[in-house]
């Protein structure tokens, strides 16, 4: 009983994915949907296989673009999060601007970037960065700002400086928040780079999909979508793993089960 429920737990995501694919295929065949409207999975796989080389080339480009933008977002987000979370006055001062900035649709900002940097990889990197640094800032700031006042009193009464408190307590305490934000940020970074590629690039999955849809090659568009989704899932799982490794103390309820 225990063993079979454990297997069910592990297999559940695969089974559901399989089910979706089967239903999707059945719908397309049963209702005879035209491939240029909504291609069946078999058509997507066929196209994906035929164009495996070019797809991988574009996917690699998108992947690298995303990683660079994400890396900048992590560094900038962590530093900004520390600044925002370290003192109530900077929190108060910076927060409205950050929220306002985050509310701007990044796709509206891509043309500005194109004017500044031209068509290509740089706007995509910047868009990936812009869209993904916000969750990092918010999480790091929250981790720092929610420090228990008694704990701060214990350290301050010993004569600890603000920096002491930040390094001994604030930063270690905000690590789980930080790692949790990385999972969200990496998926957003993919959104950012692909958005920019669809608008202004001559490389990457976004560009590939734009070209494919203008020639009504829907199977290729879907192949692109699936590749992006797969990269997102893999990176999310990777950072979830890092999170569990780095902050075992914060997930203590789980490590017997998994």
């Amino acid at each position: 009983m225990r063993i079979s429920s454990k297997w069910a737990y592990r297999l559940a995501p695969w089974l559901l994915t399989l089910l979706v694919i089967v239903v999707w295929e059945a719908v397309c065949r049963g209702f005879d949907v035209k491939p240029f409207l909504f291609p069946a999975p078999s058509a997507v796989v066929k196209t994906g296989w035929e164009l495996f080389g070019p797809i991988m080339e574009h996917a690699t480009h998108t992947f690298m673009t995303t990683l660079v933008g994400f890396a900048i977002a992590v560094v900038v987000g962590a530093v900004l999060g520390m600044v925002v979370g370290a003192s109530p006055i900077t929190y108060k001062a910076l927060y409205p601007m950050l929220v306002g900035f985050n509310s701007v649709p990044k796709v509206a900002f891509v043309p500005v970037l194109v004017v500044w940097f031209g068509i290509g990889t740089i706007p995509a990197v910047i868009t990936a960065f812009l869209i993904s640094f916000f969750p990092v800032v918010v999480n790091v700031a929250t981790g720092l700002a929610t420090l228990e006042p008694e704990l701060e009193d214990v350290l301050r009464s010993l004569g600890a400086s603000r920096l002491d408190i930040l390094f001994k307590v604030g930063l270690p305490r905000s690590l789980p928040f930080f790692f949790a934000s990385l999972k969200v940020a990496i998926t957003l970074a993919f959104v950012g780079s692909v958005i920019s590629e669809t608008v202004a690039s001559n490389m990457g999955i976004g560009y590939l999909m734009m070209g494919a849809s203008s020639s009504m090659n829907m199977p290729l568009v879907f192949a692109g979508l699936i590749v992006i989704g797969a990269m997102g899932v893999v990176m999310y799982e990777l950072f979830a793993l890092v999170e569990r490794r780095m902050t075992r103390w914060a997930n203590r309820g789980q490590h017997s089960g998994l």
Binding site: E148, E150, L151, D153, V154, S157, L158, G159, P172, R173
Partner: peptide, 19 residues
């Protein structure tokens, strides 16, 4: 005039650092 090193404090919550 400010925090002294000669004082030790403990509160109702133990406030140990979980890491």
């Amino acid at each position: 005039g400010g925090p002294l090193g000669i004082v030790g404090m403990a509160f109702q919550a133990a406030n140990l650092l979980p890491w």
